[in-house]
Structure formats: structure tokens, C-alpha cells
């Protein structure tokens, strides 16, 4: 019941609103597919999805690759230093993502912290946000992969070692295939998180400068609450939801295949 009121109902209302022209108050006016037609031609919308792809790279792909290598290295290391290092790498993950943004906004403020203006420069802003997100995300795949490595039979690695396989070959031929389920989970959850990313953008750049870091979630927020163009905002949010559902379905299907 509550689920219907809080999630299903609003979601359907959002889809309905995407077919209207509405400022949020008064009666919505039916607009058919106008908002969607506008989306297709809106350069800001396409730019926001491009930036989102860059953030998938920074939040899902890069942390997964780095996390795999680091997890394998730390797992071989064992002992106290491996526990300490894992905790240090994981530390950013415990922060609320908005607070992580506050920390980095201070670090990268033109007058505070490092006194650089990378976030204020359209040429460097996206790369900087990407770097911050790699920093934030890295601990999550690392911890998941290290837990997964505990599951693998150590005899596999030892046997390969005796056969003369070097570290990289063992990593490539044993660790990676064995960690397949974990890699799927991490890539799926991080990709979905990257598609929804809002907090760091809001705190670090507000989508600027000149849309260099605009993402769909922030773009829909702008239309809802700043431009009062609710119909258009709803259309963006509907497309985003659709993309997320499709990505989730693709991951679930890919995971089922042996």
C-alpha cells in the first residue's frame, strides 16, 4: 500500500507530467510528445549524458580495474599492513557523498586548500570531478574483491605458481575469472550509482562552468526547481529512469549467462 503511494504512484505521475507543459502550480497543459522531441534536439541534454558516461568511467570502470589489482596485491601481502592499507583506502567510502564533495570543494577552492581553480575552468572541471569520484569510490570494489578472494581455493594459485606462472598470469587466468560474480555486482551497482550522481555535482560545480559537468539528474533538478519547467524535467527524469532500468536488466541478463 505505502509502496504504491510513495514509489509507484509518483513514478506514474512523473511519466504523466512528462507529456505536459506545467510550471508545478495550476493545471498542466497536455503537450503530447513535445518534451521528448525537444530533448532530442537539446544539446545540453546530450552533453549531460556524455558527462554521465565520463562519470561511469570514473565511478565504475576505473575503480573496478584499480580495485582488482589492489585487492590482489593486498591479498597476497596478508598480515597487518594489508588490513591497515585496506582501511585507509576504504576511508573515503564512509563519508556521505555530499560531505566528500564539501571536503574536495575546500581542497580545490581557488583561495582555500590547494588554491587551484580546476573546478572553475571548463577545460579541467570534468576531469577534476572524475578524479574526486575515483578517490571516493575506490574502497568499495577493493573491499568486495578482497572478500571474494577469500572464497577462492588457494591451491589454484599455488598450482599455477609451481607451473611457473608469474603474478600477472595468475591474476589474469585465475583471479579475474574467479571474481566474475563480484565484478558484475560492483560494475552494476557503481554504474547505476554513476547514472544517478547528484550530490557531488551539486556541491562541487552545480553542473558548471558552462555545463562542463552537467549530468541528467542535475539537469532535471534544474528544470523542476529553478526553471519551473516541470514537464521537461519529468521527461529528462523518465529517460534517466528508463536508461537505468535497461542497464540493470542488461547486467542481470549478462550475469545469468555462464
Amino acid at each position: 500500500m505505502l509502496f504504491a503511494v510513495v514509489i509507484v504512484g509518483p513514478f506514474l505521475m512523473n511519466i504523466a507530467a512528462s507529456f505536459t507543459k506545467w510550471s508545478g502550480v495550476g493545471t498542466p497543459r497536455w503537450a503530447g510528445l513535445d518534451n521528448y522531441a525537444r530533448l532530442l534536439e537539446d544539446e545540453r541534454f546530450w552533453a549531460s549524458f556524455q558527462n554521465n558516461v565520463a562519470l561511469i568511467l570514473a565511478m565504475a570502470v576505473v575503480p573496478t580495474v584499480l580495485g582488482l589489482v589492489l585487492a590482489a596485491v593486498l591479498f597476497d601481502l596478508r598480515g597487518r599492513s594489508s588490513v591497515v592499507l585496506r582501511a585507509l583506502y576504504y576511508l573515503p567510502q564512509v563519508l556521505p557523498v555530499a560531505v566528500a564533495g564539501v571536503v574536495w570543494r575546500w581542497m580545490l577552492h581557488p583561495e582555500h586548500g590547494l588554491k587551484v581553480d580546476w573546478l572553475g575552468n571548463p577545460d579541467t572541471a570534468l576531469a577534476t570531478v572524475m578524479a574526486v569520484m575515483v578517490w571516493f569510490q575506490l574502497g568499495y570494489p577493493l573491499v568486495i574483491f578482497m572478500a571474494g578472494l577469500g572464497r577462492i581455493d588457494p591451491a589454484l594459485g599455488e598450482a599455477a605458481s609451481i607451473d611457473g606462472a608469474g603474478w600477472w598470469r595468475r591474476f589474469w587466468n585465475i583471479t579475474l575469472p574467479q571474481l566474475r560474480p563480484e565484478i558484475f555486482v560492483v560494475l552494476a551497482t557503481c554504474t547505476i550509482a554513476a547514472l544517478k550522481v547528484f550530490g557531488p555535482i551539486f556541491v562541487l560545480t552545480r553542473g558548471g562552468p558552462s555545463d562542463a559537468t552537467l549530468v541528467p539528474s542535475y539537469f532535471s533538478y534544474l528544470n523542476f526547481f529553478t526553471k519551473l519547467d516541470v514537464g521537461y524535467g519529468s521527461a529528462i527524469a523518465t529517460v534517466l529512469a528508463l536508461v537505468i532500468v535497461v542497464v540493470t536488466a542488461l547486467f542481470l541478463r549478462a550475469q545469468e549467462r555462464p
Binding site: 539528474s217 523542476f224 519529468s234 527524469a237 532500468v245
Partner: peptide, 10 residues
Amino acid sequence: TLPQEALVFP
């Protein structure tokens, strides 16, 4: 998994 953006205005 739905994004909150698609629920927020309603």
C-alpha cells in the same frame, strides 16, 4: 533502483 529524480516532483 529507480532514480529519485523520477519520483521527486510528484
